[in-house]
Nucleic acid binder design. Structure first.
Length: 353
DNA sequence: AAAGCGGGGAT
DNA sequence: ATCCCAGCTTT
């Protein structure tokens, strides 16, 4: 066994965190944890893992759920395609494979939502298949220890790090080793200001020798943020009912629900917006701008400048829903936060009674 | 090869 | 503000 792997494994035996998906080799639980943890910190994902295991203890029970309920449980975690693909794949496994999980990388990677990383993780952790995981943690540990400055998000970099990972992995303890190197990256070889002084690998670390710890790994950045202007219309009709739409098609928040939306390309004058709202509804009793200052909701690639308009109607909305039923719909965090304050408002109490 | 897709925590 | 998190899919 090479020094690198041996040290990592020894470190792991001493410092690993007790996490619920480490107590098992049940591929359903490992799969669920891996999907939840994609681009997500353990601290953020942990409560979601607990909720899902509670509601859906087996893949068959997840498969039997409504997509809307799965998304509701996922609400707040982001990257909602993960939840849709999770549900889709649960149904595939239940119907096509009698609830039995595939036990090889080659089969796993064909499932929706499972890429190279996740297939490697499940195959190695549950079935002992010698596949290295290469996630953000592993990129960082390898780049620093071996002094590699190829960009980790370039085609050449991805190939290079994958091959390096294969070379140094400990195939005889692949289940432990894969979790160990990720845990090492998360706790010891951290992105910012790692504690190199007490690192068990400091004597052989190229980045430390060359004072390049702070500059490795190298990552090409491209982040362009798009500004969008959202106006949500909270209709309230004679019965106290409102209206929600399901987001369909491309773009953010697919299959989540939202109030009727008017998107503009600038922040409109209030009077201009009153005109726009009036022109699309016949029987308006009153329109009130909820708050003058827009809410700025920041996604990684979009900033949403958002205003909410309370639109009271004289008649009844077609396909309206009660305000009390709102909590059962999966909604973006932007709307969940609005609803929290809206529930304490005059409009809410007036319409509920 | 590049873009799109969330939300939160740390700095 | 910026970076990054147990990445995957689509264009």
């Amino acid at each position: 066994m090479n020094t690198f792997s041996k040290t990592i494994l020894h470190w792991y035996s001493k410092y690993k965190r007790p996490l619920p998906w480490r107590n098992t080799r049940d591929p359903y639980k490992v799969w669920l944890s891996e999907i939840i943890l994609q681009q997500t910190r353990v601290a953020q994902g942990l409560p979601y893992y607990q909720k899902f295991i509670e509601h859906y203890p087996t893949v068959d029970q997840l498969a039997a759920a409504e997509e809307s309920d799965v998304l509701k449980l996922w609400q707040g975690l982001g990257y909602y395609s993960r939840a849709r693909n999770l549900h889709f794949t649960a149904k595939t496994i239940t119907t096509d494979n009698n609830g039995q999980f595939p036990d090889s990388y080659e089969e796993l990677i064909q499932l929706k939502g499972i890429g190279d990383y996740t297939a490697s993780a499940i195959a190695s952790i549950c079935f002992g298949e010698a596949r290295p995981v290469v996630d953000g943690n592993v990129y960082r540990v390898l780049a620093r220890y071996f002094g590699v400055d190829l960009p980790i998000n370039s085609t050449k970099g991805i190939r290079y790090f994958k091959n390096l990972a294969i070379e140094v992995m400990e195939a005889s303890s692949i289940s432990e080793y894969n979790q160990a190197i990720m845990e090492f990256g998360a706790l010891q070889c951290t992105p910012q200001q790692p504690d190199c002084e007490h690192c068990p690998l400091n004597s052989g670390c190229m980045a430390l020798q060359q004072t390049r710890v702070a500059t490795l790994p190298v990552k090409l950045k491209k982040n362009k943020v798009k500004i969008r202007y959202f106006n949500y219309l909270i209709f309230i009709d004679q019965l106290g009912n409102t209206k929600l739409n399901k987001r369909i098609g491309k773009g953010i928040w697919q299959h989540l629900y939202e109030f009727p939306l008017i998107e503009t390309d600038t922040l409109m004058e209030e009077t201009e917006m009153y005109g726009r709202v009036s022109s699309r509804e016949e029987k308006i009793k009153d329109i009130v701008l909820w708050k003058e200052d827009p809410v700025v909701h920041k996604l990684s690639h979009q900033h949403l400048i958002t205003r909410f308009w309370i639109v009271e109607l004289k008649g009844e909305i077609k396909g309206g829903i009660t305000l009390e039923s709102l909590p059962k719909y999966p909604v973006p965090v932007l709307l969940a936060e609005f609803l929290d304050t809206f529930k304490n408002s005059y409009f809410w109490s007036k319409s509920i009674s």
